[in-house]
Design a protein around this nucleic acid. Sequence first.
DNA 1: CCGAGCGTTCGGAAATTCCGAACGGGACGT
DNA 2: ACGTCCCGTTCGGAATTTCCGAACGCTCGG
Lengths: 293, 293
Amino acid sequence: MQLRQLKTFEAVVRHRTVTDAAIALDLAPSSVSQQIRTLEGTLGVVLFTRGPRGMELTPAGRRLRGWARSLLDQAEQATRDVRGERQLLRLGALETLAGSYVPQVLARFAERRPDIDVEIHSERARDGLLADVIEGRLEAALLLDSGDDVGGLGFPAPAEPLTFIDLDPVPLALVSAPAHPLAARTALTPDDLKHERLLVNVPECSFWMAGNKILGPGPKRIKVGGVPVMRAWAEHGLGISLLPRFAVADSFRSGTLVQLGLPLPDLSLRLVWREGQESLPGMRDILYAAARP
Amino acid sequence: MQLRQLKTFEAVVRHRTVTDAAIALDLAPSSVSQQIRTLEGTLGVVLFTRGPRGMELTPAGRRLRGWARSLLDQAEQATRDVRGERQLLRLGALETLAGSYVPQVLARFAERRPDIDVEIHSERARDGLLADVIEGRLEAALLLDSGDDVGGLGFPAPAEPLTFIDLDPVPLALVSAPAHPLAARTALTPDDLKHERLLVNVPECSFWMAGNKILGPGPKRIKVGGVPVMRAWAEHGLGISLLPRFAVADSFRSGTLVQLGLPLPDLSLRLVWREGQESLPGMRDILYAAARP
DNA sequence: CCGAGCGTTCGGAAATTCCGAACGGGACGT
DNA sequence: ACGTCCCGTTCGGAATTTCCGAACGCTCGG
């Protein structure tokens, strides 16, 4: 077993064909094929089934996959440590979070763990983010969630075991224009709102999911776009919207939006990582450095 | 970086000279030298200072050492897992424990973790045992100890951080022949015993150390040999001895020994491993499988 | 039936790894 | 001070490994 072979194995897993893996590795397909065959010979197991559409992992191949990731990660961390460079924590975050929440998390890492380099990877889709954590391309990821389990907000969680800590509460606000008929009411219930127009983003959006949990299916969904767009439409009285409170703080101050009187639970800014697969020594302690004091 | 180079690096660390490492690896010294040079080139650091007496690790080399062990261990465990073989736990124990305590520990592993192969390594000296744990040749070791820290019984603990669980209490008995003048006394104190002859083994022996803690320097030490020899001499009225209670249970039943009335704390059968260096996934959980229900 | 896309085989070139011989340096004993 | 021993290194060459490109066989879709 050689690290070079594991790297090739991983490329095949990722790209699904010898041909594409070869391109990615800047090798000839025959070299890739040969390395995989040699690795299979060394281990005495078949790692892939071969088909006209490419390579599919066998059960043994699936078992190797986690090890390969881990060994390659450790080799990289070893290189960094031996060179006197800092350890690298690859942290994924959705683009929607990258601007708002990531800086304070980075600040905490910088303050409490100056020995660690944190590399932020922005991603557009939560499922891709979680896949990267599961497959070892990221050490951890930041996302919005609620409840006691990953996916409590409503999105599908991967089958593989994930561990998490909740770094910060993320308070929400259900907002409307000041002239809204319900603006002066207190002690609203979801039932009061079932005939409202709820300005929303796509179904994968955390606030769409939060809206589902808090308001139920009652209000009519009006898809308008991201947080800034939802806020703008709400200010124009085109509907109500469920948004993170910090995103509408200025609108409250300027009087262009008001918060409706519906009690709201907080979401959590959640740091998630793969259980039992920690490429960094003391990774749990490192991740805990991001928690609120 | 290649695993083959790390294996060579480890051999040089262990054997201290290129020449002896070459013998151990069945390579020519020039091949060993060349691999080390190539590794240094790849990493961009010097790993050894060369001298007429052999190779000495630099700080960068010391940092690599732990990683090398870990990577090689993981590669081996990966091979086993991928082949569908069980994971291997290398467990060290002093020869003096191997016969008495190890079987029950093995039985617990077999019952609770049939997925793990436990390989027992007997060793004569505790410091060698602990060195093997520190240097990664063993996943864990069994020894007798007391108190809240490794080494609480009195032997020197390594500088590196060790973690442990206490698997079982090991009750002790201070024994004498039935005709001993103090045999009928109750509520003895160490002071009552300071003029006694205490039958002992070597200073590295756990019971010697326990005797020091419990009885102090008062009794005269008579070095006689291992547990069976100490028991035999005590039966012949040649002195008192501090022994694990199970080792003298038969002598109690047959009336050839009695237990003196001095209250005794238990020792602990302690499972020790290197903190932060766990080559097996879920190693802590595996080790906890050896604990008493 | 044919073309595309896939992985594999195979012979050969290129690169890597190992070896043995020879060398230089340091330490030790006489 | 010198000779010997042991050490690691250098170097040329042999052996082995790795990579490549060409050719092939297989499956699938049009």
